[in-house]
């Protein structure tokens, strides 16, 4: 118990260090003193850079990374499969279609830091998973998974078709799908924090049902878990967290797969501890990946989704080999 708590504290310190690095490094390197002064009174050489550019960016990384990791952790329990990720039942292709439709419709800001593309992506993800759930809910998690694959394929094909017909939207859709944390200020945070962060916290509150589901439907049912309602609540919350995250960041792959895995290795399978550990690991991974993405070949910025997939692909293979 105290060992797990100690690991959570260590993770928290590591996350704080990742945040500090994310704020210090970039096109202009700043010192810890600069960071301290900028946060304290907004002054100093990097005041504006820190307050208006880097700080919101790392906070965005934390929120998106944590939401994706919480969602991935929930799906890994629900499907009893360590290879499950936030996009396993169609959230990413739904978000992509929603974003594409919004881009084709002209995009544009709708106030409060939110854009039509964000709303399209958010609703697209929710709608896609709702369709998958309606098709596959009666059956086992496997039916849900297969329905997810089928619906995802149809939606992705639809995105390709739209791009083909309206080829001037190609570049914008492409950039959106690659995923990234750039170009957002503080004003997206309230919506992201309340929806994505709120859904993640509620998933944490469902730690005990998630524990039960990890033992399989037979055991979970025999200890009195209402399976249908529990599954529906978990899918709804995990999808809401994912949808809120990708609406702002685009499709950032593998953070929702790797974060939970690292956490599971560190603190074990009990979701009361695993969930916060996974959220911190996911947040840290995305902040660090984003730091590399904007400094590796500066001034060119790599979309962070490319980077997480570059690193995540090999890790995925490593997992597959270990499972044999």
């Amino acid at each position: 118990m105290s060992r797990r708590f100690g690991i959570l504290l260590v993770l928290l310190v590591c996350l704080a260090l990742a945040l500090l690095a994310g704020v210090m490094f970039g096109s202009v390197a700043l010192s810890t003193g600069d960071v301290w002064r900028a946060i304290r009174d907004g002054g100093g050489p990097g005041g504006v850079i820190i307050r208006e550019l880097r700080l919101p960016r790392v906070v965005l990384g934390v929120l998106v990374g944590a939401a994706l990791a919480a969602s991935g952790t929930a799906y890994q329990s629900l499907f009893r499969n360590p290879l499950a990720d936030p996009f396993i039942i169609g959230a990413s292709s739904g978000a992509a279609l929603g974003a594409t439709l919004a881009i084709v419709a002209g995009g544009g800001q709708i106030g409060g830091g939110l854009s039509l593309v964000m709303v399209g992506a958010f609703l697209g993800a929710l709608a896609a998973v709702a369709v998958v759930y309606a098709l596959g809910a009666g059956g086992s998690p496997l039916t849900l998974l297969l329905a997810g694959v089928a619906v995802g394929t149809v939606l992705s094909a639809t995105v390709s078709l739209i791009i083909l017909v309206r080829d001037q939207s190609l570049q914008m859709v492409y950039y959106w799908v690659l995923g990234g944390l750039s170009g957002h200020g503080w004003n997206v945070m309230p919506a992201l924090l309340s929806i994505g962060g709120g859904a993640s916290m509620l998933l944490w509150a469902l730690a005990r049902p998630l524990d039960a589901l990890a033992f399989g439907d037979e055991v979970a049912g025999s200890i009195g878990l209402p399976l249908g309602r529990a599954r529906a609540a978990i899918v709804l919350l995990a999808t809401t967290a994912t949808a809120a995250a990708v609406a702002v960041s685009g499709i950032v792959g593998f953070v929702g797969l790797i974060g939970p895995h690292i956490a599971r290795r560190l603190v074990g399978g009990r979701h009361g501890v695993l969930m916060p550990a996974a959220m911190m690991a996911g947040a840290m991974l995305l902040v660090l990946a984003d730091l590399v993405a904007r400094t590796a070949i500066a001034p060119v910025e790599i979309p962070v989704g490319i980077l997480t997939s570059l690193l995540g692909g090999p890790f995925f293979l490593y997992l597959l080999r270990r499972r044999r």
């Binding site: 009893r80 524990d211 990890a214 033992f215 055991v219 009195g224 599971r264 074990g268 399978g269 009990r270």
Partner: peptide
């Protein structure tokens, strides 16, 4: 049963108190 390999013996039994 699908035992979650990362769960401790005590946690796996405690869930029976749900």
């Amino acid at each position: 049963e699908d035992l979650d390999p990362g769960m401790s013996v005590f946690d796996a039994v405690l869930i029976g108190r749900a």
